[in-house]
Design a protein around this nucleic acid. Structure first.
Lengths: 363, 363
DNA sequence: CCTAACGCTGAAATCGATTTCAGAAATCGA
DNA sequence: TCGATTTCTGAAATCGATTTCAGCGTTAGG
């Protein structure tokens, strides 16, 4: 009585029409049918048409497994993102998929949850699947992972960053430069008391780390290095943005400018500022990063950095398609970001007179 | 001079280690190696270990194409979502992928951009790829698509809806019932002058259409049928939510409750209300649908309906895994939604005395 | 009219893993 | 100790499409 209840019949009901069935119907050999599909130009037109008719009649489609086995190409690309929950990645993946689809490729998707070990496992699974190319995110990948890719001989590209180590080509923006520019912009407005909210909790989030470094470097250059308490580390969420701002203002009540490494954190910070009765931007300037749709609709609209996610996705697709075909490909592509100045940033009100503290501008 | 510059060598550099290589090294037959991998329990333990060692030494991995060809199973599932840009779908896809990954399946992803023709094409491409199961979104699919699925004999499930036509099983929530409940809640608060903002522009967006119907039905039952001008159709975006509210209040300045079919529209509407100087919820109650992260962080927090996207994704994965294995599966699964009452809704201020217009309650 | 060249088609080998079938080895009972 | 099971392993067939190679028929040139 251990038998499973028999419910659904296993396997396909109709035993799938194969190339020989078409060949028989059309009175030709299987080879000819294959040629009609793969090299139509070398088959006599009338014969080609006849075969084509039978192909359509029988609704024949090639078995991709057999095809892949013989040709060694799966016509498949894999992508591993940290998470899909971030619009910025979802947008990139969507663009990637659309472009690949146009070229007859199909996209495998996996997510690592910002965990390098998981990223490695998912990659392993994708490579076993015989993918022809792989898209990663970010610059920090284990040595293990890189050697796996190399050993498999699969073209790879990493995204959302301007460059990555280990000889992996990249397509994306220069995150550090972007926040440096943002910080310099705020410095020009006259701010001197800064705070930073960065989602650098996940070990593998090199984008946010680079962004934080951009802030620090710019402030260091300006002679206003950030003290550890002026940097609040957060996870990726609105509520963390809220609590981060509260903590920052508890430690440094006189802060006039808060730079966040993502829009989500910035939006959380703005919500908290409102609740605390702080006027943005009058008493507090807040900036974000990513330029999500909501950023422009905030009250006040959020100053942020626009990331060309769709372009990154398309670019990654094009890169891989060429690399797989053996065409020449660029080493890396640095895409332009765009500093979007809106109304959440303004000169500090009680212009605290920067005091021009005479740091030696020795460079 | 037409020759392409020869850059990258085509194909894999190392000619991939195959099962016979392992067999030779281990002094066994290929059959035994295969058994070690697929039915370890029927191989003598010491032999099994020896073979395993060589498998690891050579870093052998099975060629999935050959495997799929022989077994007829690709261990692959496909999903077609309208778009990934919506967090609600991204979340579901992520959960789906995670669960499938645990069971050794890999997920193909495609998106239809709310276009039925495109959905059909992507499905065709997925089926040619030999996927073992398919996940769709929503209830409205062309007859063409359904017959393609049937003909291919591939298990299918549709998501985010409680039921779908054409014998396709579904897992999701009852959208119509959810908005009906929301509307009834607002009616109980004493509202009588309603407005609805619905993203029903895309032809295939049956979820939003069902939601709109839920609103209409509840109001009809209450004797307060919506006039066409009380329903503003919108696309899916914040700005559309803004303009929709403006238009609604132009036509019906005395509206006290606005029901939106998505949080995005509701958030847009709230932004516009603030700009127009309307107090929410004092003079205007606004409700959404989806319960995105931001909803709870709004000022005031948004009353909405929570959709169990992750659970839908997991459920769809489980369904397909069982269906593929031939195990018994449920026809459809209706998951509970949750009415989340926050502070964006309240009784109307100047309680306009419903007047209890003596409609015949003939039912 | 005959040979050379060309264009097109079919038979068969091939891709790599799985699985059936049969046989070898080991175990057990008598 | 011998025959009967049982356990385990190997040889070979198989999945379906692609492609090489050879041969057929046709056309052009002499």
């Amino acid at each position: 009585m251990d038998k499973k209840p028999v419910i659904a019949p296993k396997g396909r009901q109709q035993p799938r029409v194969k190339i020989e069935d078409v060949a028989r119907k059309a009175n030709v050999s299987a080879a000819t049918v294959s040629r009609v599909l793969n090299h139509p130009d070398i088959v006599r037109p009338e014969l080609r048409d006849r075969v084509m008719r039978h192909i359509n009649d029988l609704a024949y489609t090639r078995d991709s497994a057999a095809r892949a086995l013989k040709s060694g190409r799966m016509r498949t690309v894999g992508v591993i993102v940290p998470t899909l929950a971030l619009g910025i990645f979802a947008e990139g993946v969507e663009a990637l998929q659309n472009r690949l689809s146009e070229s007859g490729y199909t996209l495998f998707i996996a997510n690592s949850q910002y965990d390098q070990r998981r990223e490695f496992q998912e990659l392993q699974s994708l490579i076993e699947r015989g993918i022809d190319g792989i898209v990663l995110v970010g610059a920090s990948h284990g040595r293990e992972l890189r050697s796996l890719i190399e050993q498999a001989g699969v073209p790879v590209i990493t995204t959302y960053v301007a460059k990555a180590g280990g000889g992996i080509p990249a397509i994306g923006i220069d995150n550090e430069s972007a926040t440096r520019e943002m910080t310099e912009y705020l410095l020009r407005l006259g701010h001197v008391r800064f705070g930073a909210i960065a989602n650098v909790v996940a070990a593998s989030n090199d984008r946010s780390r680079a962004r934080l470094e951009g802030i620090q470097r710019a402030l260091l250059d300006a002679g206003l290095p950030l003290k550890p308490t002026q940097i609040v580390k957060a996870d990726y969420s609105l509520v963390q943005g809220r609590s981060a701002l509260r903590q920052l203002l508890t430690d440094h009540p006189d802060t006039t400018a808060v730079i966040c490494t993502t829009d989500t954190l910035a939006i959380g910070a703005m919500a908290e500022a409102r609740k605390m009765g702080l006027a943005v931007p009058a008493t507090l300037s807040i900036t974000g990063f990513d330029d999500v749709e909501l950023a422009a609709q905030m009250d006040p609209p959020l100053t942020t950095v626009s990331v060309p996610a769709a372009e990154i996705g398309r670019g990654a697709a094009d890169y891989l398609i060429n690399a797989i075909a053996g065409s020449p490909v660029p080493r890396s592509v640095v895409l332009p970001y765009r500093l979007v100045v809106r109304s959440s940033s303004a000169p500090p009100r009680s212009n605290a007179r920067p005091a021009r503290r005479g740091r030696s501008r020795d460079h």
